[in-house]
Design a protein around this nucleic acid. Structure first.
Length: 486
RNA sequence: GGCUCGUUGGUCAAGCGGUUAAGACGUAGGCCUCUCACGCCUGAAACAGGGGUUCGAUUCCCCUACGAGUCACCA
């Protein structure tokens, strides 16, 4: 029998998606796509008290940013709709009643007060529903229902043990004594998440249920439900949590950032997806840089980790730089151009070239201004920078060098990088100097910075003759006034 | 507290009874170079602890410690 793999990402619309959420979605997507299956989006909004404005849009937006295109969902439809749980409420009660008829569930009329009391009296923190309403006779139930008394429907957990198989954790057995008769249908008539989930997964023919390990302990109850209905149990894949440096599961409350915020901070979506996938999953080989479609080709359940992973910004930052380096130049330039335009007002500068120089030296586009800000305006710098042991320069010989260079550059006609470099080296040779003894002071005078995106000769070409000479003059003045002070 | 799960360098992680215990980020040092960066090379750094099983345990079993999850008419 050939069954198509169907996975679903089933978030509740809280208006926030962090890397933990994203990672679950990625794995669902990859499991489906690596098997030629379908990836479905379903919104789990059965809690009417927690509706958040615009929350569903955040989910659409995030999936789109990440490139996780779903095959079915509220916004695009599909053969198994509707894809918003609150829109499909009609069926749940009927299914719950089926369970009542089968003896796998029962009506409960206990009010909040009684339940609270029950919890309060519970010993040692263990408090299960006491099956008070299970004792009700058929007639009593009928009478209460007819009188319009509010009710819930609870799952009747049978005696024994329940075993289920998870693809990452293996077989897990739990004594049913640990399981509570959980509510299936709430008094507002809506299903609980736990019930809606089972019914919808079955109705939507979901083959692989992927979710966080927080559901590991309720999985036996799901299995009991599937068994009571006589439905086929899906493949379970429980994925571990993503934590912060302190080992706490990341959450909005703990200061996690949303995917949208990460993108706003300059992280490239592909890098976020790449890094997030590797957080809790290891590829069969040693590669680390993967596109989403490459991941589809090589993804296997085998690489999923059993222990939680700490989210490491440092490594994500590195990966972001890697993506920037390998990015197609035009695509990169589209991102860099606005930043370049803003930080360079000087006319006649080839921005594309500057962009090119920056490309391999940054991890974020926003780092560009700080490495090129000297172009518009020479920053005030410390003359200590002229002294460099390795370059064999001191403030004294730098002064001589700058004077020499002023004469030399004034006379220089070919103001291209190659020509200036070659001629400067030649000049140094003639004067019995190391080329660095000219080039180092030159770079310093032109940029006033410890680090520049290119060498001294290229700086000359970049700034032009007039500006270069002007900056040399400033350098000379700085060095001379320092000598006078001595 | 009960139950369930987990524990390889600072972090992500490979390993699936016999290895000098991979690799990556970070870190230290070096090389290259007109600076920085890129790139390249090298180094430091780990099997939580204790018992078994076995000729042999990071790998299998048990106990302890630590951590996580869960115990709602929330998802």
């Amino acid at each position: 029998m050939i069954t198509t793999v169907r996975t679903r990402y089933a978030p509740s619309p809280t208006g926030f998606m962090h890397v933990g959420n994203l990672r679950t979605a990625i794995y669902e997507y990859l499991i489906a796509k690596s098997n030629g299956g379908s990836f479905i989006l379903r919104i789990e909004d059965t809690d009417q008290t927690r509706q958040v404005e615009g929350a569903v849009e955040v989910i659409y937006d995030t999936l789109k940013i990440a490139g996780l295109n779903h095959d079915e969902g509220p916004d695009i439809g599909g053969a198994y709709g509707p894809y918003i749980q609150s829109h499909r409420k009609t069926g749940y009660l009927e299914y719950a009643k089926q369970l009542v008829d089968k003896g796998a569930a029962y009506y409960c009329f206990c009010d909040k007060e009684r339940l609270e009391e029950l919890h309060r009296d519970g010993k040692e923190g263990i408090s299960k529903y006491d099956r008070h309403c299970l004792r009700l006779s058929k007639e009593e139930i009928k009478a209460k229902l007819e009188s319009g008394a509010p009710f819930v429907i609870r799952q009747l957990i049978p005696e024994g043990k329940t075993t289920f198989k998870d693809e990452v954790f293996g077989e897990i057995t739990v004594d049913n004594k640990e399981l509570e008769d959980q509510v299936l249908i709430k008094s507002d008539g809506l299903p609980t998440y736990n019930f809606a989930n089972v019914v919808d997964d079955h109705l939507m023919e979901i083959t692989h249920v992927v979710r966080g390990t927080e559901y590991l302990s309720s999985t036996p109850k799901y299995n009991l439900l599937y068994e009571a209905f006589g439905w086929e149990i899906p493949v379970y894949i429980h994925v571990t949590a993503v934590t912060n440096e302190s080992g706490e599961k990341i959450s909005k409350r703990k200061g996690a950032e949303s995917i949208q915020q990460l993108v706003e901070k300059g992280y490239i979506p592909e890098a976020i997806v790449n890094y997030t996938t590797l957080l809790g999953w290891a590829p069969p080989d040693n590669r680390e840089i993967f596109s989403l479609s490459e991941l589809c080709d090589i993804f296997t359940l085998k690489g999923l980790s059993k222990s939680p992973s700490v989210f490491d910004y440092q490594k994500l930052k590195w990966m972001n730089g890697e993506y920037l380096k390998k990015m197609d130049f035009d695509e990169y330039y589209k991102l860099a151009e606005p930043v370049l335009k803003q930080s360079i007002k000087t006319a006649g500068i080839d921005l594309r070239h500057i962009g090119e120089l920056c490309k391999t030296r940054i991890e974020f586009i926003r780092q560009i201004p700080s490495i090129i800000d000297f172009i518009d305006e020479l920053p005030d710098y410390d003359i200590e920078m002229y002294t460099n042991k390795k370059m064999k320069t001191t403030s004294e010989n730098s002064l001589d060098a700058l004077k020499l260079l002023t004469d030399f550059l004034s006379a220089q006609e070919d103001f291209t990088n190659d020509a200036i470099y070659a001629d400067t080296v030649k000049l140094a040779e003639e004067k019995g100097l190391k080329s660095s003894q000219l080039l180092w002071p030159l770079r310093t005078a032109l940029s006033g910075k410890q680090a520049t995106p290119c060498g001294a000769s290229e700086l000359c070409a970049l700034l032009g003759k007039t500006e270069s000479l002007r900056r040399l003059e400033i350098g000379i003045a700085k060095l001379e006034s320092a000598q006078v002070e001595k």
